[in-house]
Design a protein around this nucleic acid. Structure first.
Lengths: 130, 130
DNA sequence: CACCCGCACAACCAAAAGGTTTCATATAAG
DNA sequence: CTTATATGAAACCTTTTGGTTGTGCGGGTG
C-alpha cells in the first residue's frame, strides 16, 4: 500500500517518531517508550511510516529496528520549496522559478541557465519520480 | 481556531487550492470551478486553510477573494529542512549507499543507483543558501 | 421592487484516523 | 523444556475528516 507522504507527516506523533529514529535506529519498544500511548498505537504509526517509505524495518533476532529514510521527504521539500520565495528575501531565483512553473519542459531550458534552486529541484523531481 | 499547518497541507485538494491561489487571488466560486466536488466542500477546505493562516479572505462586494499567505509554509520548510542533510551529503542509513555519497563520483554512482535526487538537491540547496 | 448570485451555515452521512484491549507467535534466556 | 520478551494482528470504539443537500441572507442588477 502506497501512502501519501504529506498525510504521513501530518500527525505530530509520527513526526516525533521520525525525529527519534533519524539519529539512529531503535527497536519498536524503544521508540514506544517515548510516548504515553500504547505500544500498539506507536506500532501502527510506524507501519504507516513504512508504507510511505519514510522508515524501513531491519529484523534482528526478535527485535525490529526502525531506520529512517529521510530522503523520502524530498517530495515534501520540493512542494514547499516551490513557494519559498514567499518568505525568503525575494532574490533572483523567483524569476527562474516562475518560469519553470509554466510547462514541464521549462526544466530543460532552465537547466542550462542554471539559475539555481528551483530549476535544480525541478530536475531532481523528475529523476525522483518512479 | 488554530490549525496545524501540516494537517492543512496533508489533503491534496487543499494543496491544489494553494497552488491556484498562489498565483493570484480568486473568489470562492472561481476556485471551486477547478474541482468536481461541490462548492461547499471547497469552501470548507478554504476555511481550514484560513484557520492556519495559509489563506486570508478579502471581501469585495458580495464576493470573497482568497489570497495566499505562503509564508506560513515556513514552519513546514523548517521541519523538513532539518533533515535535508539526509539527502544531501550524509547517509540515509542505506548501507552501501552512504559509501557512494562522498565526493565527485557520488553523482555518477548515485544516478546509476536510482537515487540521483539527493545530489541534485544538494546542488540546489547550496545555491539556495547562498 | 423583484430577482439572481455568491456565499455561509446547519444537518446529516460514510469512511478514515487514532486509540485501546486481547490474543497469537517467534525468539531469547534460564 | 519453560518462561520471558518483542512484536504483529484482530476486534472494537470514538473522533475527525471529507463530502453531500438544503436553507437563508446580503449584495448587485434588470
Amino acid at each position: 500500500m502506497r501512502r501519501d507522504t504529506f498525510k504521513a507527516i501530518a500527525d505530530p506523533t509520527r513526526r516525533k517518531i521520525l525525529g527519534i529514529v533519524a539519529r539512529r535506529s531503535f527497536n519498536i519498544n524503544a521508540v514506544a517508550d517515548n510516548f504515553t500511548i500504547s505500544r500498539t498505537a506507536v506500532c501502527k504509526h510506524i507501519k504507516i511510516l513504512t508504507e510511505c517509505g519514510l522508515i524501513t524495518i531491519r529484523q534482528q533476532g526478535r527485535e525490529r529496528y526502525c531506520e529512517a529514510r529521510m530522503k523520502e521527504l524530498c517530495e515534501v521539500w520540493d512542494w514547499v520549496s516551490q513557494y519559498s520565495s514567499f518568505w525568503n528575501n525575494r532574490l533572483d531565483r523567483q524569476d527562474g522559478y516562475l518560469a519553470s512553473m509554466h510547462g514541464e519542459k521549462a526544466s530543460k531550458t532552465a537547466k542550462k541557465k542554471t539559475s539555481g534552486h528551483a530549476v535544480a529541484v525541478t530536475t531532481a523531481r523528475k529523476k525522483f519520480r518512479k
